[in-house]
């Protein structure tokens, strides 16, 4: 059994970089029990990162009213939609496409998202209230891994 922890974000969009910042502490906490991958790529590029794992925990940001609050989404919250451009493809479409093509991608997903302000601005790092979510985020990722028997 192989667990992937996929950390997503754009480190030039300030708060959106929170997923990427989480990668290092998560890696420290998980050791060899999971593979941690982080990327700013999007859309179908995620397929290549997901391939070959049984389970996945996705860490990302989500626009919301309470910056720093952690929300757990279910895969049902992320239904694939028809998008008009390769640039508009998100995680749900990537998972859907990979499964459809018969690739070995995770069967189970846990999705943990840190709320960030709705209006995104360009900047080098997340604001303090967003970054403040890191300890709880790491704890919840570890718990999720434990529930699946990886830890």
């Amino acid at each position: 059994m192989k667990l992937l922890i996929l950390c997503l974000g754009n480190d030039l969009l300030g708060d959106d970089g929170i997923g990427l910042e989480a990668a290092e502490p998560i890696e420290r906490a998980m050791g060899t029990k999971a593979e941690v991958r982080s990327t700013s790529m999007s859309g179908l590029y995620l397929v290549e990162l997901l391939e070959g794992f049984d389970d996945a925990i996705v860490v990302d940001s989500i626009p919301g009213d309470h910056p720093g609050r952690i929300r757990e989404l279910t895969p049902n919250d992320l239904k694939p939609v028809q998008v008009p451009s390769a640039h508009f493809v998100g995680l749900p479409e990537a998972i859907h496409a990979a499964r459809g093509a018969g690739l070995r991608v995770p069967r189970r997903f846990r999705i943990l998202a840190v709320e960030i302000p709705i209006a995104q601005t360009i900047g080098a790092s997340p604001r303090p209230e967003v970054r403040g979510a890191l300890p709880e985020l790491v704890r919840r990722v570890t718990e999720a891994a434990k529930e699946w028997g990886y830890v």
């Binding site: 969009l13 959106d16 999007s42 859309g43 008009p84 640039h87 998100g90």
Partner: peptide
């Protein structure tokens, strides 16, 4: 009509779900 161009405008965003419907 515009999908043929595969337009790219707001592609820097990444927050979930990451896609942009019309």
């Amino acid at each position: 009509a515009f999908r043929a161009y595969d337009p790219c405008h707001a592609c820097a965003t990444h927050s979930l779900p990451g896609h942009m419907p019309l």
